[in-house]
Design a protein around this nucleic acid. Structure first.
Lengths: 334, 334
DNA sequence: AACATAGTTGACAGCGCTGTCAAATCGTAT
DNA sequence: ATACGATTTGACAGCGCTGTCAACTATGTT
C-alpha cells in the first residue's frame, strides 16, 4: 500500500502537482474552482503532506529548538508553556530536548537540533561546553540563552542575576535580625550555585558564618527532599534561626517537617523560598519567596526569536535583565 | 555561505558521498582507513547531516509523536519523562504536542504528527473526534492510548479505570463513617469526569446525597484553586465532613485553607486527594490519596511501541490495566 | 482591433540524502 | 597462476516536495 503523494492528489483533481502545493500553502493564489477540486481530492484520498520533503525542498523547517535541563520541574513547564503559546501560534514547531543537567548531553542536543535545521535555538542556562558554544556561534541562527545572565552571551541573553537574587533573599533574613542563617539546596546546578554565591556574599558582608544544608546526592523529589534535609538537620541538633531554600518546593517540605516536629514558622524559625511558585501565597503560613519571571522569560525569548527570523538584519548580542522581586510573607514575618 | 553537505565532505575526504553516509550510519561497513579520513573531513568542515533529507530518502523518521493535554501538570511531566528515557535511549526522537484539553487541537496535532511521518503515536486519553479516530486507525502505525481504559481501543490501550478509582476514594470516606462527602474539582476533563462518575456511583450505593464543589471556569493554578474553592464553600457555611479532591494539588490547597480558618484536618474534616504526588506523604498532616502509575504508564507505552516497531507482526488491539492503589494517611484518619 | 496589465497555471530542476545493485578489491584455497 | 567467495566501494536513481520562471488566460485601455 503506497503512501498518498501530491501527485496522486494532482491526478485525481486533474491539475498539476504545483497547483496542489499552492492550494495547501497559499490558497489565495489559486482560483476558487480549482481550489475546490483540489480540496475534494485531498479529502477523498486522506492526503497528508510529507513535511520532510517540504523542508528539504524549501529549506525552511519552521522548527525551533528548545533545550531545557529537565522536563520535571514546574519552572521549565511554565517556561515551555509560554514558548509554545507564542511559537505555535506563529506557525512554528517547537522541538524540546532535555539535557538532564549534563553539558555533554546538551552538546548532543545541540547537534541533533542543528541536524534538524531548526531556525533558532532557545537554551536554558549560560554554561556550555566549548564545542557547544562554537556550534551555536557558527550556526548563524538566532540563539537565546535564558534564566541567567552571561558574562559573555553567544547572541541574545534573557535572564536575571541568580547571584543577586540569592543575595537579596539572604539580606532579607539578615535584616530581620537573624544570625544563624542556613542555605538549603538539593543538587547544585549552575543557577542554585549562583544563588549560593549570593548567599555567601551577603553572609560575608554581614560577617556571619555560612551554614549549609546540601543533599549528599541530587534527588528529584523536591518537597520530600526539603522535609528530609530539614529532618536531618534537626536530628543533628543544630537548627538555624532562618533558612533560605533554593526552591519553594524545598521550602514547603521544610515547613511541613517543622510542623511535624512542633517547630513553629515563623515564631521558632523563618523560611524563605525561591521562584514564588503558585502555592507560596496560599501556603499556611504563606511562604516568603523571590518571584522570578518564567512566563515572561519564555514569552520574550519566543517573541525575540520571531522578530529575528522576520528581520533579515543580523542582530548583535544583547542582554535583557528581567529582574526578580522579593515577596515577604508570613514565613519570615517577625 | 552555502551549507556543508555530504558531497563537500566526500570531496574533501576523496571518497564517494555514499561512503560518507555509511561512515555516519554504519561505520563497521567501512574500512578503518577511509573511516578516519571521513571523520577528519566531517570534523574539519563541521558537517551536520540534514535530517529532513535523510528522512525523505530512507522513509524512516525515527520519530514518535506524543500528545498530551497540557505541559503544565506534573502528571504529564512524569509520564513524558518516562517516555523520553526509553525512546531517546532507543534512538528515537520524541515529538511532544499539547492539545490544550481540546479535541479539535488534538485532531490538528494528529495531522501534524502524521505529516511528520512519525512511526508511532502515543496519546493521552481515549476520547477523540471521529476524524481523529479515523486518521489514527488508517495510519497503519502503532497507536497507544493512555491513562484511561477505552471501551473501544484504537490499537493498544494502557491505563486504569478512573471511575473505579474515584469510587474507591469515595468508599474509603464512606467507610470512615462520613455522610456529607463533597467532590472537589477544577475543570472537568474526561479523567476528572470519570472520577466524578465513580464518586456518584459510590454515593448512590450508600444512599448519600451528592455534594459538588466545582470551579466555575477552568483555571491552571491548582493549589491556589483548592484554597479558593474551599474558602468559597466555607463562606457559604456548608462545610462537609469529608472531601474527595480530584488532584493532590487541590487537596493541598484545601488543607492549607483549612488551617488558615482554624479547621483541623482530620479532626474537623477529612480530605483525600488523587495521584499520590510526591509531597502527599510528607505533607502535614500527610495526605491520603489514590496512587496512580504515571511512570509505569509512560515506560510501558514506550516499550510496547518499540516492540511493535521491531516486530513486523501487526498486533491486535490490546488493553492493559495498570490499576491504582488507595493510600490511607493522616488526612483521613479517624 | 491591438495592446498592456494583472492574475493563473504549469514545466523543470533540484533540495541532500539513502536503497539497490553492480563493480572493484582482497585474501585464501586450489 | 587461477578461481572463488567475502568484503569494500561506488554509480545511479529517486524519495516528495517547492522555487523559479515561462506560458497562458482574462480583463481593461486606447
Amino acid at each position: 500500500m503506497r503512501r498518498i503523494t501530491l501527485d496522486d492528489v494532482a491526478n485525481l483533481a486533474g491539475v498539476s502537482p504545483i497547483t496542489v502545493s499552492r492550494v495547501l500553502r497559499k490558497p489565495d493564489a489559486v482560483s476558487p474552482g480549482l481550489r475546490l477540486r483540489v480540496d475534494a481530492a485531498v479529502k477523498e484520498l486522506g492526503y497528508v503532506p510529507n513535511i520532510a520533503a517540504s523542508r528539504l525542498a524549501s529549506s525552511r523547517t519552521h522548527a525551533i529548538g528548545v533545550i531545557v535541563p529537565t522536563l520535571y520541574n514546574v519552572i521549565f513547564a511554565e517556561y515551555l508553556f509560554a514558548l509554545h503559546e507564542v511559537l505555535v501560534a506563529a506557525g512554528f514547531q517547537v522541538i524540546v530536548v532535555n539535557s538532564r543537567y549534563s553539558e555533554i548531553e546538551e552538546e548532543n542536543a545541540i547537534k541533533a537540533l542543528l541536524g534538524q535545521r531548526v531556525e533558532a535555538i532557545i537554551i536554558a542556562g549560560t554554561h556550555h561546553t566549548p564545542l557547544s558554544r562554537q556550534l551555536l556561534a557558527q550556526a548563524r541562527l538566532p540563539v537565546v540563552e535564558t534564566f541567567e545572565l552571561s558574562p559573555n552571551p553567544i547572541d541574545l541573553n534573557i535572564g536575571m542575576s541568580q547571584e543577586h537574587a540569592g543575595q537579596t533573599a539572604t539580606q532579607h533574613l539578615i535584616e530581620r535580625g537573624f544570625r544563624r542563617i542556613a542555605f538549603l539546596t538539593g543538587n547544585l546546578d549552575h543557577r542554585a550555585q549562583s544563588r549560593f554565591d549570593g548567599y555567601r556574599l551577603a553572609m560575608q558582608e554581614a560577617e556571619l558564618p555560612n551554614l549549609e544544608i546540601i543533599a549528599e546526592r541530587p534527588r528529584h523529589s523536591y518537597v520530600a527532599l526539603g522535609s528530609d534535609l530539614f529532618a536531618m538537620t534537626h536530628e543533628r541538633g543544630d537548627v538555624p534561626e532562618a533558612i533560605f531554600c533554593t526552591d519553594d518546593n524545598l521550602a514547603l517540605g521544610a515547613m511541613q517537617e517543622c510542623r511535624k516536629r512542633g517547630i513553629r514558622v515563623p515564631d521558632d524559625i523563618s523560611i524563605i523560598g525561591f521562584h514564588d511558585l503558585e502555592f507560596a501565597a496560599c501556603a499556611a503560613p504563606s511562604l516568603s519567596s523571590i518571584a522570578t519571571r518564567r512566563f515572561e522569560t519564555g514569552k520574550l525569548a519566543a517573541e525575540r526569536v520571531l522578530a529575528a527570523l522576520n528581520s533579515s538584519v543580523v542582530s548583535r548580542a544583547e542582554q535583557i535583565d528581567l529582574g526578580f522581586a522579593l515577596i515577604p510573607r508570613e514565613s519570615t514575618a517577625i
